[in-house]
């Protein structure tokens, strides 16, 4: 046997092993791909089901009923829009720290807001000429589970919603 023959033989065996390895890998990957595609199809179907359920739960009639029951909110009315010019600006804090004016300022303005010196959007608005119409207020209703729901924070609302579904 010549040296070259041996070399070829080794090379052939090596190629054979590499080819077998590759083909096995392809086989495995193909199975994985099929599994992934199946799970994608499954997820897509789940998304459709969840989308339908989401639409069902967000039915405007149901949302309106829930909002009336649990939230202290009402639809916006045109009277609640005001122009920025109609908002009275807060009186500028007195420049000189005279003790008398200081007292008045502290009385009227809450301490957290005062140092920022921004337009007092938080302060209740008083319009000069006309009174804004009071927003529609809905009566609180009993929660579907029988309790008297006075849920005020978001987490409570979510909790009671979960009870209300189905």
């Amino acid at each position: 046997m010549r040296k070259s023959t041996l070399l070829w033989l080794i090379l052939t065996v090596f190629c054979g092993i590499a080819l077998f390895h590759t083909s096995q890998k392809v086989h495995d990957e193909r199975a994985r791909l099929a599994a992934l595609n199946a799970s994608i199809a499954h997820e897509k179907q789940s998304i459709r089901v969840l989308g339908a359920e989401w639409a069902y739960l967000n039915n405007p009639r149901r949302l309106e009923m829930l909002a009336k029951t649990y939230l202290h909110m009402a639809p916006l009315s045109a009277a609640q829009f005001i122009r920025i010019d109609d908002i009275p600006l807060r009186a500028a804090p007195a420049a000189a720290p005279a003790p008398q004016t200081e007292k008045i300022a502290v009385k009227k303005i809450s301490p957290e807001i005062q140092p920022r010196k921004i337009v007092a959007l938080e302060r209740p608005v008083t319009m000069k000429t006309r009174k804004p119409a009071p927003p529609r207020i809905f009566k609180k209703r009993a929660a579907p589970d029988g309790g008297t729901a006075t849920a005020r924070n978001f987490r409570d609302v979510m909790k009671s919603l979960r009870l209300g579904v189905e």
Partner: peptide, 24 residues
Amino acid sequence: GAPAETERPLRASIVDRNGNILAV
């Protein structure tokens, strides 16, 4: 490995102008 496409595709949804589902 590709997904089977032999079945009839699912009928397309109908949504409103904001994407809320009307038919699925």
